[in-house]
Computed example of a mutant assay.
Amino acid sequence: MAPSSLTTSSWPHQELNQLPPDTIFFGHSEHMKALQSRIEKIAALDMPVLIEGESGTGKDILARMLHQRSPWMSGVFVKLRCSNIPESFDDFLESYAEAVKGIPRATLSSAHSGCHGTLFLDEISETSASLQAKLLRLLQEGRLCSVNLKRCKLNLRLICGTTCALESAAERGDFRRDLLYRINVLTLRVPPLRERTADIPDLTAHFLSFFSNAYAGEAKRPSQEMMHFLLNYSWPGNIRELENLLRRYVLFGCEEAVCQELLGRASEQNTKQLSSPGAVSLKELTKKAVRELEREAILKVLHANKWNRRRAACALNISYRALLYKLKDVGMAAAAPGKADWQAGVQQTR
C-alpha cells in the first residue's frame, strides 16, 4: 500500500508525531467537554468505535487519543484510508499485512501490550459495495483485527471515521446496514468549529505559537478586528481551514489579506446557498439575502473605520443604536474581543 494511505492529520502536530494538548483540542464548549468525558469512559473498552464529524474536525486526532488512553497504548496504531484500499480481496489482505508489518520492529515488542494496538479505518463511507462485503466478511471471521506476525499475534481494536451520516447512507442503500451494525457499537461525534466558536481564541493562540516555533519566527498578535473576523466566519473547513489560514499568517504576516480572504469566502458561501436547488421560500430567501448583504456591508465599514462603531454608524448613515441592533441581528458581537481575551488564550498554550 502507498505510504500516503497510512498517516496524515488535520493538525500540524502529526508532522512531529505529537498530539495537541487536551485543553486546546477539547476547549471549553459543552459539546467538546461531553466528548472528552465519553472518551475517558470508553477508551479501555475493546469494542469498535465509530467517529462521526465533518472534514477537518480532527477525527484522526480523536482516534489517536483513544489509542493513547487505552490499555494497549504502547502497541501499534495503524491508519488505513478506505479510498486507497484496492478492490481485489487478495490485494487488500496483502497490503493490509504490509501496512502492519511495516511498523518498526521495536514497536512490536515481545511484551503483551506490544501485541495489541488500534486499527483506524478513515472514511469508511468511501468504500464500494464489493469492498464493504469483504470488510464485513473479515470482521465476521475475526481476520480484520487479528494479524499473525512472526513475533506475535497482533490484535487490534477497530475505530472507523466518517464524514458521512452512515445511517442515512444505509437508508439510501449506499452502505451495508449489517456492516454498520458491526462498526457502530460505540459512537463519538466531533462537532464542527462553528458550534464551538468560543474555542477559536485559544485555537488561534495555539496555532500561532506552534507555527512561530516551527518557522523560527514570531507572529504579530492579531488585532481586535481580525479576531472579530475569525469569530464570525462559519469555517466550513473547520479546524484544518483555521490552521492553514494561520499558517499563512505566520509566514506572510499580512492581516489585511486574512480579513479580505474571510470576507471573500463568506460571500462565496452565501452565493452557493442562494443558488442551491430545491424548494425554497422566496420570503425567507429574500430575508436571508438582505441579512447577509447587511452583514458584509457592516463588516467592511467597520474594517475601514478601524472598528470604531460610532464612525461606522455615521458612514452607514444610521444611528449608533441602530448599528448595535444590526450587529446583534446578524450574529456579530456588539464589541470586538479585547486584548485580555487574546492574552488569556496565549497563556493557556504555554
Results as ranks from 00 to 15, higher is better:
I61G: 04
P191K: 00
V250G: 10
S234T: 12
Y249N: 04
L156E: 05
A129G: 04
R309M: 05
I159M: 09
L203H: 03
H303N: 09
Q347M: 07
A97T: 11
E218V: 11
R64A: 05
P12E: 07
G142E: 12
N213T: 13
R105C: 10
I298S: 02
T187M: 01
W72F: 04
D202A: 15
Q132D: 08
S55G: 13
L188G: 02
I85M: 15
S29F: 07
S55M: 10
K153E: 06
L121V: 13
C254Y: 08
A44E: 05
T204L: 08
V147F: 03
R105P: 09
S223D: 08
W235M: 10
K101I: 14
R221G: 05
Q36W: 03
N270C: 11
Y215C: 01
D22T: 08
V185H: 11
A304L: 06
P86W: 03
E167P: 02
G58T: 03
P3V: 15
M332H: 02
N155S: 10
L299N: 05
F211I: 04
S74N: 13
L285S: 14
S319H: 11
G217V: 12
D60F: 00
R248F: 10
A106C: 04
C259E: 07
R81D: 15
E218C: 10
Q140V: 08
K134I: 12
E294Y: 01
L6F: 14
I159E: 06
E256M: 09
Q68K: 10
